[in-house]
């Protein structure tokens, strides 16, 4: 039974083979199949007719002699002289090398751009202890280095001084803190006690104890600021004025679960 859609499907397949059929490049069995279809299909015969014409035209073009090129190597060679001898890179890795170079350059640029900001954020840790002379006996010996409990380098001091009291025995921590606070109290700059990054709310342990030492309400009017419920384990002294040098004391509490605070 004649199936129109099946026939059209066959026509599309045959159409794709007509060029090779014309060129006698089809396998024998397929060639016969195409011939059988062509015998029954007028539409494909018309297509074959035009395919044959196109094929003949192209064959004629292929066999046709084309003119010889006018230019020769002698014409080209002087043009090549203008160019330097090509330098062979490692072509396979060239893209990688370029991307790495670009990446490093970009990273350096970003670093340069943000360097001042990073400098302001990161406390400068000074290896030299510049504590008050009277109180420096106990503190420096037990504090992990690098440590600055407080600094007296006032006028040209870096923006932030950082003191770390990590892993300090509880009893010595108290002494170290007192030493630091005394040093800060003797400072010629007003100070503010702030809290940053504490694991335990500082007010539990430290607020009452720190205040008498850390906030000697001197004529320079230092202020104490102890934020409540701040997730911090550091105490920081910073100057009240942003234009003045900062003094920072940071304390990392070794054991915050204990009730008897060193403060």
């Amino acid at each position: 039974m004649y199936n129109f859609f099946e026939h059209k499907k066959q026509c599309r397949q045959i159409e794709q083979m007509l060029w090779d059929y014309t060129a006698h490049r089809l396998p024998e069995d397929i060639y016969e199949k195409v011939e059988a279809h062509l015998a029954l299909c007028d539409s494909c015969q018309r297509t074959l007719h035009s395919t044959r014409s196109a094929h003949q035209l192209i064959s004629a073009a292929r066999s046709r002699e084309i003119p010889e090129p006018v230019s020769t190597w002698e014409d080209l060679a002087p043009q090549l002289q203008r160019f330097p001898v090509p330098v062979q890179n490692s072509p396979r890795y060239a893209p990688l090398v370029w991307s790495l170079t670009g990446g490093v350059a970009a990273a350096l640029l970003i670093l340069l751009a943000f360097l001042p900001m990073i400098g302001a954020l990161q406390p400068v840790v000074h290896p030299v202890l510049a504590l008050h002379p009277a109180e420096s006996k106990s503190a420096p010996a037990v504090i992990n280095k690098p440590v600055v409990l407080a600094s007296k380098t006032t006028e040209h001091a870096p923006a932030t001084h950082h003191a770390s009291l990590q892993q300090l025995p509880r009893t010595e921590l108290a002494a170290a803190c007192r030493a630091a606070f005394t040093a800060l109290a003797a400072s010629t700059h007003p100070v503010v006690l702030t809290q940053a990054a504490a694991r335990t709310p500082l007010h539990k342990h430290s607020a009452p104890a720190v205040s008498p030492h850390a906030a000697p309400h001197t004529a320079k009017q230092p202020r104490i600021q102890l934020p409540q419920n701040s997730p911090s384990n550091q105490l920081q002294y910073v100057s009240a004025s942003s234009t003045e040098p900062h003094y920072v004391l940071s304390m990392l509490q070794p054991d915050t679960s204990s009730e008897d605070s060193p403060y």
């Binding site: 080209l76 043009q79 090549l80 160019f83 090509p86 330098v87 062979q88 890179n89 072509p91 060239a94």
Partner: peptide
Amino acid sequence: FVRAYRSFPE
């Protein structure tokens, strides 16, 4: 060929 000469390293 000029282009090829210049581009051969790549």
